[in-house]
Write a protein that binds this DNA or RNA. Structure first.
Lengths: 209, 209
DNA sequence: AATTTAATCAAACAATTGTTTAATTATTTT
DNA sequence: AAAATAATTAAACAATTGTTTGATTAAATT
């Protein structure tokens, strides 16, 4: 999907508010006011509030899997190095699109009747298949252990990253980092997560440390 | 807080609906209808919808930390065994109170202005202090490594558990377990998480496998 | 048995919700 | 320059929101 500037402006405003207050907690008038446009423009451009959420998803979730595929397949690396690449890719994606992932987290918690659950399901499936392939590569060469539960492993990657990102205010407070500029703090948390998750994945995948 | 039977009935109905549709996505009339009571009873007993959410939190979050403290301090165990106890305690708690934890997950994602964020913050702080103590015990005896980042470690426990629980329908589908009775499936997922997380914690804490 | 307190209810309340309308202004195309 | 399309607007729409009211019934207390 391609959106014009005004549409992007609405989508991005909605994204921020949805992340902060939830989909149901945000009114179309909130969005319109924050974006500096008339309420009717939302229906005019997207049809409805629900379809605006769908538009947001196709705007963001777009070709994430393809990016990941491209990045990994076009490099000649050891299986574990590819896994590490994937870990950093995920952390970066999460960090650059924090608002969107907050919305995704919420939608995943909800019952599976919403307009987004199908999109998320599809996205997750393709992604897990890719990771499964990566792991099978490593198992063929004998570098990786057998009996790896991919969904559980991915739950660790996504769950840990998502939780720490969502509760970063708490992480700041407990470590007395309230005064640190956000840019610096994001770098810190990214590095922390990267080292931590790579360590965990190596332990699980190779049974070595 | 102690609630009478009718109050509990309302709280537990609200809990299910909040978990499924979110706080904003659930109307007081939904709750009243589902609980088989009059709408006015909610204001009558709790004052407001927001205060009903607060009541739910004090109803559930109650003495979780004390339970955990009691369970751990009153046993003579090696540090790692205490950690394992804590892991299983968390998984069990999460599994027995899935609706409540879904609500907590959502509330944590939201901006920090809600009525619950203070309660969650306080609960998390006390809990992390307890875990910190546990880890320091192990560090004194030399069983645990130095430089353990407790919040990151707890993000792995809570994040992984929460994510897998929230997306269990997906886990069922990808493993072709749609037909498995829920009781059996819950046991399976509990065991999976328990083994997985204990392995990860041991790797991080002892640098051994 | 009389009185007080608690519980329950349908109805009304004002505010807010997402969406549509019909008119007006900008922009593009002919 | 005229015509046609797109963008924008304030106002209205009906539906739903959380909450309150005032009356009625049930339970507890005296």
């Amino acid at each position: 999907m391609d959106f014009n500037d005004k549409q992007k402006q609405i989508i991005e405003t909605a994204e921020q508010l949805f992340a902060d207050r939830g989909f149901e907690g945000t009114s179309v008038r909130d969005i319109a006011e924050e974006a500096g446009i008339n309420v009717a423009m939302i229906s005019y451009y997207f049809g409805s509030k629900e379809k605006l959420l769908e538009a947001l998803f196709s705007y963001r979730a777009g070709d994430t899997v393809q990016q990941l595929e491209g990045m990994i397949h076009h490099k000649v690396l050891a299986p574990l190095e590819k896994i590490n690449l994937m870990i950093d890719f995920y952390i970066n994606k999460f960090q650059r699109q924090q608002c969107f992932f907050k919305i995704m987290m919420r939608e995943q918690v909800a019952s599976q009747h919403g307009v987004t659950s199908g999109l998320i399901q599809h996205f997750k499936k393709r992604n897990q298949q890719l990771v499964k392939q990566l792991i099978q590569e490593g198992q063929k060469t004998g570098e990786f252990s057998k009996n790896i539960d991919v969904p559980v492993l991915m739950a660790t990657l996504i769950g840990t990253t998502g939780h720490l990102m969502a509760t970063q205010h708490f992480y700041r407070e407990i470590n007395h980092l309230q005064e640190m500029p956000d840019e610096q703090f994001q770098k810190l948390i990214k590095k922390k997560l990267s080292v931590h998750l790579k360590f965990l994945f190596k332990a699980i995948l190779t049974h070595e440390i």
